[in-house]
Write a protein that binds this DNA or RNA. Sequence first.
DNA 1: CGTTGGGTTGATCGACCTCAATAAAAGTGG
DNA 2: CCACTTTTATTGAGGTCGATCAACCCAACG
Lengths: 246, 246
Amino acid sequence: MNNVRGHSNIVKLVSSPASSHANCEYCKARTISICAALEFDELGALDQLARKNCFQPRETLFHEHDAANVFYNITSGMVRLVKVLPDGRRTLIGFAMTGDFLGLSMADRHVYSGEALTDVSVCEFRRDGFSDLVDQYPHLLRRLHALTGHELTIAQTQMAILGRRTAVEKVVIFLLTMRDRWSHVNGSNLLVVLPMSRMDIADYLGLTVETISRTFTQLVKQKLVVIVPNGVRLVDIGRLEAIAAI
Amino acid sequence: MNNVRGHSNIVKLVSSPASSHANCEYCKARTISICAALEFDELGALDQLARKNCFQPRETLFHEHDAANVFYNITSGMVRLVKVLPDGRRTLIGFAMTGDFLGLSMADRHVYSGEALTDVSVCEFRRDGFSDLVDQYPHLLRRLHALTGHELTIAQTQMAILGRRTAVEKVVIFLLTMRDRWSHVNGSNLLVVLPMSRMDIADYLGLTVETISRTFTQLVKQKLVVIVPNGVRLVDIGRLEAIAAI
DNA sequence: CGTTGGGTTGATCGACCTCAATAAAAGTGG
DNA sequence: CCACTTTTATTGAGGTCGATCAACCCAACG
């Protein structure tokens, strides 16, 4: 979103103008995240509020049940959203990536933990300041609301998927969805980057690690995908989409 | 919410004052729905916009994929939210009841159909007018946003439930959740009203009708619930909550 | 070189689905 | 009100997909 206060890879790579907003121009999240709702001068106000921060793999951005004092806009990397059930079982709510805003609903407390899967850079917003900004710029609340609604739709679709699908269908849908989400930031690509473990995928899809593993090898044997380091390459999109039947 | 333009059971039951807002006072949805965000004078504006309407069981309020020109605030009755998967399978996203607002996300199109399970009365709001009102009263957007966030949390919790729970756990969680939701409008009660069919419950929980039926009889044999017309009576809340382990 | 954590593979078991029959309830028309 | 159909619910028998338990592989790392 903006790269004012250092740490940003982008700042290091491109020669950034002196202006404090201008860095947003080079931010991959700029056009797809909440920032897209803002005019040039409003972006300046957001800029004032933002604090650039970085996390390393396995670092926790925030804990489930903790007070949500800070909201995060992810500018690069991937974060897993983890919820622990009362009986100790672990569930993954989802994976957040470039452009995703964590804290969309502006709820008082985090309902899941956020854990970095890769190097992650974020723009952090303190709750109070952000709340004031939202009051000041109705576009921003509109945008937040629209994005929350979108998330709600995604969650409801995911519910439907988890309900009555076979393991293969779930995994294929997962792969295609990851590709689509990644394409928003990086263009369409047959390479799906999967920085998370099989266990994470299992907990996300409501399956076991063993089943995920078996399903992957099954897809490989059928020449639908090829396993590569940190991900898979989709070989036969047509048949994959037929299986998913989205 | 308001009962201005006739048809309302409430209007027939209580002698309503002449004032056009005042009817909201007798509306069961008044304190728990979006209306709760509004001041007295703002409620008047909402009142202007609202059109009272009723639906009979099996009537469709709106169809999946249709343009969402009207939003609905349910003042009594129950509505099932149905999504049809590409392969023809049916999924229930949820059940909407008194106080629920359909169209929270203000998306362009409905992502599921709404079908009346009982006699349903609603306050209808045309999209354009409602959108203007939202622009006019920031509280209202805030409230909409908060409720959308709440729905999102519910959906994510439901995802977690569907993931890794046994049939018994799912059904028990369903029953307890229905009771809790109903209690907001009617006080705590051991009688859970279930106007939907077993098929509906099955499609909601990602199970088959047979499994739902078997699970119910199992719960009855264990003296945890008693089946009554149009619902169940919870007998042993303690053990039920232990099974749910929410 | 042993250790550790993630990933794969195999064998077995069980929960839930599927198919099928029956029962109960809710409409329908005379 | 009663026969009739249609829908919904229950119960049974058998099959299957994914979980469980267990062994093994492999790469990273001290």
